[in-house]
Amino acid sequence: MNHERFYSRVNGPTLHRVNAVRWLDEVSPRHLAGGGDPRHVTEHLLASGWSNHSVVGFPHVLLESPDHHLHLTLEPEPDERSTWWRIHPAEDRAWVAQFGGNTPAEVIAGFTDALTSTTPQHPTADLWRLAASRGWATRRAGRERAALSPDETAVLARVSSLSETPRWRWDVEVSIPLSDTRRLWVWGASIEEAAPAAALAGFVDALTDPTPLLRAEGQTTGHTFGFLNSLRSTVTPEQHRLLHLQRLQATERLGPPEQSPATPPPPQGSPRHRRRR
């Protein structure tokens, strides 16, 4: 049965069918824009050659990189504080990147789009300079460091685990004030510093970018009312859909990255791996 017959978010609002969406809003700051459409991440990875291992009938997404070295899992949870997105190496779990459900897909894409990047490593200091240049106020506490967003609703911090051999990670906490002493959690993220440097830099770049994000009516979270700036966009839902398709087509033209020479070829006679969509 064709899914387009169903009244479902899978049919829109902007990526596959326009449906009844009349307009889009440009919302900022982007870290309060809500999760948006996860296909901004997943369809781009599929266009980049990642394979789909999701189980039919179960509400999750399981993707594997073309070289079989990386896994992405998207598993929605009822609790907003829970981790929805996980990206990590397939075998040794040397690092993990985790994102909550209200993390904007465009910010997660800053990380995933750069996973196969060959861009030279960015020194940590460059990331703090990038955040500061965009109005994020930096502060130190010993070896740890943090940056506060201009609206003071998001904190980006570099912290270490409490262990004999500490592991450094980059944490994000987004919350809005309810009173002088209480705050309402919106979303959180954590990326271990052993993750690919280009991907970490892509995430920080996407997080601190002051450019508004496009959202349809009802896509933003209700508890950010009063903290989110919204302006009717001149971009139509159809134009937004076409921009998304152009992004996928550009990725498909580039093709997946070349297979690493360190990866042994499959044994003779083994079944071929088929990419599933």
Rank of each mutant, 00 (worst) to 15 (best):
F99Y: 11
D209Y: 04
E75H: 04
Q239G: 03
W168R: 08
D113F: 00
E43V: 10
L24I: 14
A114P: 03
T181D: 14
R247H: 13
N102A: 13
V174F: 02
L184I: 07
T220V: 15
E164G: 15
S54W: 07
S175C: 12
R139V: 01
V56I: 11
H53V: 04
A197V: 03
R22V: 12
V107W: 03
L200C: 00
T208V: 13
G135N: 09
R9Q: 10
S230A: 15
R30H: 08
G101Q: 14
Q259H: 05
R241F: 04
V21H: 07
E106D: 11
P13T: 04
L74Q: 03
T263L: 14
E252L: 00
D37T: 04
G188I: 03
W128P: 12
S163R: 08
A132R: 15
L156I: 05
L214V: 08
S117H: 07
D92K: 10
R158Y: 05
A125I: 15
R247E: 02
M1G: 06
D113I: 00
R86G: 01
P120D: 15
P177D: 06
L213P: 05
R241D: 01
A195P: 15
R86I: 02
T263C: 03
L46Q: 05
D92L: 12
P76M: 00
A157W: 07
A201I: 02
L242Q: 13
Q259F: 12
T83K: 08
E43Y: 07
E192C: 06
F99P: 02
Q239A: 13
Q98L: 10
Q249N: 10
